[in-house]
Design a protein around this nucleic acid. Structure first.
Lengths: 343, 343
DNA sequence: GTGAAAGCGCTAACAA
DNA sequence: TTGTTAGCGCTTTCAC
């Protein structure tokens, strides 16, 4: 055969400097260069400095994809939420992010738009990225998704509500929160009470709160009234809710809204209409968003600790990843009734 | 030597089914199984079905890390924002996410907490993940970060403001927005005007708006007054801002706030104090958040289109990734003055 | 339409 | 403290 024709076929070189090049420049093997980054203590200080200098010199950026493939772990935490339009999820994400990023983990964010099929698909994708753990908002999944989560051999954290969790669980009891507010309204003397929800098949935690609300009213011998809006919670929807309550339930004295967006929207709308709150109509919400606490009258609502929920969830997952023994796999962050002047 | 002792050292098997196993079960080679997923047209329909059945049967989840390493591309889009506490960034992210996810890309979200060193670090990390493109909020980066972005050979999109961008740019002219509001206030007859910002070294776009505001006032022969708060914008901070303006600038007739959170906080606080708006004090904001449009009086503000900004940015990046020729690398989404009753 | 071989860039395991 | 070797699971290239 003619000239030793190298059998190296063309390979798309990303043209990025590699660890091997760093190692060569520093006069060490690539594993030593690797250790200089990932396990600095195990490398001689002078050697390490030479390696770091070499990296600097050629502009080395570690290829994390290759590292993950080799080590079969990534520093990704998958976070799956149903919506980004709701401040509540954003705050949970903030709590998660601050804690995970401080520990060197990256968040891989997925938005299901309240579609559990989409959730399943996102979970598959994230598992395909070898994420270290998964955090999902809520306990409801498709059977296939549950199976995937149960068998993935990674910490799985379900936040927001409490219940039969797959693995770890941080949240609050929404039914109890609904009851709490209903009891408050009864205690204030209201009898004609309407609960207003928005897309409760999707926002099923609002339906749980309604269940608690309803149980209290029924136990008191009252008829629960329900109005469901066909759009997600917003100030706009709250205004519409108030209009429709006045139309469909003219005798209503109090309205228990599924969340603060709705309740504040209704409250601001009432002020616009010149309705006296709570004299003519009392309004209550859920979440304890800052907004409701800045309007006059202040909104009566239930304070949930979203940031804490995120932080606790992240801490628990990190503990799990560190191999620590987890004693309490379920944590109840509770809630507080904020009595404003709107009831 | 004794028995053919297999020289296979223990390797952490992730124990997950692999494409090779799928292929074996389906009686094809692994590359065919790969094509059944990534390039279905090139595989015989019956064969493809056999492969998909096999995947289903053994619960195959594609290892995207391995795929990315082999192909040197991921379906990640890095998105770097300075804060998640600000609704504005959330809405841009929503616009980006909806568009990118629909095109099969995942968002890798980074939060710099207004620290451009942290931004640099995040950009390195994301490049290490072979992200397909990067989106950053703003044009300000460390020199090293600029260099990294300029040389990374991927689409780089800078959103929020307009200017000397590295590659692609979608945003609005903040200086002009500040001028626009200042002109509005002058036109309404206000002369004693205070601009209230919050941490403007970090939120430098607020400083740009102030520059526009200031230029208009100076051109009109008026003295610009500035009050800077040492915390990020919030309803709470807005209330404090109003207090401090009344204290430090007793003659002030109008307050131009750097954003709607501040302005609405001030407006709600004024209502609480029983101050008449705009008779005793006029208040204006920036962003056009729903909140300001639901209070009475409605807040005069500037509407920016965050969702559109995100969508346009994503569309532009996708076009770039598809290899299309980009004619306009800079897009101005503009803004609209919303005249409420607060001025 | 399908397959064989090579290797993406890194790290685990073992060895010195 | 450092190095050798193998291979993570997939896709590219080239060949049929």
């Amino acid at each position: 055969m003619s000239k030793r024709k190298a059998n190296t076929r063309q390979r798309r070189g990303s043209a990025q400097p590699t660890l091997a090049q760093v190692a060569e420049l520093a006069g060490v093997s690539s594993i030593t260069a690797s250790r200089a980054l990932n396990d600095p203590e195990r490398v001689n200080a002078a050697t390490r400095q030479r390696i770091l200098d070499a990296m600097e010199r050629i502009g080395y950026v570690p290829n994390l994809v290759a590292g993950s493939l080799a080590s079969a772990r990534s520093r990704f935490i998958a976070v799956v939420v149903p919506s980004l339009a709701n401040a509540v999820f954003i705050e949970v994400i903030q709590g998660l992010q601050a804690t995970f990023e401080a520990a060197g983990y990256q968040i891989l964010l997925g938005n299901t738009d309240y579609d559990i099929e989409r959730e399943h698909q996102l979970v598959r994708t994230f598992l395909g990225w070898s994420c270290s753990a998964l955090v999902t908002a809520g306990l409801r999944h498709t059977p296939a998704c549950r199976e995937l989560l149960a068998g993935c051999n990674r910490p799985v954290m379900e936040v927001m509500e409490l219940g039969e969790a797959l693995d770890l669980n941080v949240g609050l009891d929404h039914e109890e929160a609904g009851s709490c507010m209903a009891r408050h309204l009864l205690q204030r003397g209201y009898r004609d009470i309407v609960y207003v929800g928005a897309r409760m098949r999707e926002d099923y935690r609002a339906a749980m709160r309604y269940a608690g609300h309803r149980a209290v009213l029924e136990a008191a011998g009252l008829t629960p009234h329900l109005l469901e809006l066909d759009r997600l919670g917003s100030l706009e929807a709250g205004a519409e809710g108030l209009e429709r309550v006045r139309d469909q339930f003219p005798g209503a004295k109090a309205v228990h809204f599924a969340n603060d967006d709705l309740a504040t929207g209704a409250l601001l709308h009432a002020l616009r209409l010149g309705l006296r709150v709570p004299e003519e109509i009392a309004l209550a919400g859920f979440n304890g968003l800052p907004l409701g606490q800045h309007v006059t009258p202040r909104l009566t609502t239930i304070q949930s600790s979203r940031h804490t929920m995120g932080r606790l969830a992240a801490e628990q997952v990190l503990r799990c990843l560190a191999g620590e023994e987890i004693e309490t796999r379920r944590q109840n962050v509770g809630f507080t009734l904020l009595e404003g002047e709107s009831t």
